[in-house]
């Protein structure tokens, strides 16, 4: 069995339902048809304009860090950040960067990436997302 056959057999599940898996994974938002406000969870009505029609839209996969913190409680420090993805703020963990104030900078360019969280007892692989410094 070669590697690509193996990949095809593995079932995958995203860490959250707004992460869409595929060749180029992306984040998906519910966008208000009336005012274009975006939400990562469901809304009965838009909290901005009260419209009740939404369309699923793809969120830009690269952006700029507008805020961050480095959480140092617990065994492994991690970087929590807000990334402005072309006007849509996204909450995420920054990965692929040293969790130090010297390496993480406000205004740095980052892009979406995914990684495996491992498989469950039925062989389903969980895929999570993070943002990583842009190439």
């Amino acid at each position: 069995m070669n590697e690509s056959d193996n990949t095809a057999l593995i079932k995958q599940i995203p860490f959250v339902d707004y992460l869409v898996l595929g060749e180029e994974p992306y984040l998906m938002a519910n966008e208000c048809n009336q005012c274009q406000a975006r939400y990562f969870d469901r809304r009965n009505a838009c909290s901005c304009c009260f419209g009740d029609q939404f369309t699923k839209v793809k969120v830009a996969s690269s952006g700029v860090v507008t805020s961050f913190t480095i959480v140092e409680m617990g065994p492994v420090p991690y970087v929590s950040a807000v990334v402005d993805c072309d006007g849509t703020p996204v909450r995420c963990t920054l990965i692929g960067v040293d969790p130090t104030p010297e390496k993480v900078q406000l205004g740095m360019s980052v892009e979406l990436t995914t990684y495996s969280m491992g498989e469950d007892s039925e062989g389903t692989e969980a895929i999570a997302f993070g943002f990583t410094p842009a190439q």
């Binding site: 913190t69 929590s80 950040a81």
Partner: peptide
Amino acid sequence: GRFGAIGSTEGRIGTNIMPGVFAQVGME
């Protein structure tokens, strides 16, 4: 849950702990 998460989002999708949330408020 609301986001169909398969585990705790803490550390996976940023942070919920108060010192972290408010740190981001100041950094913003």
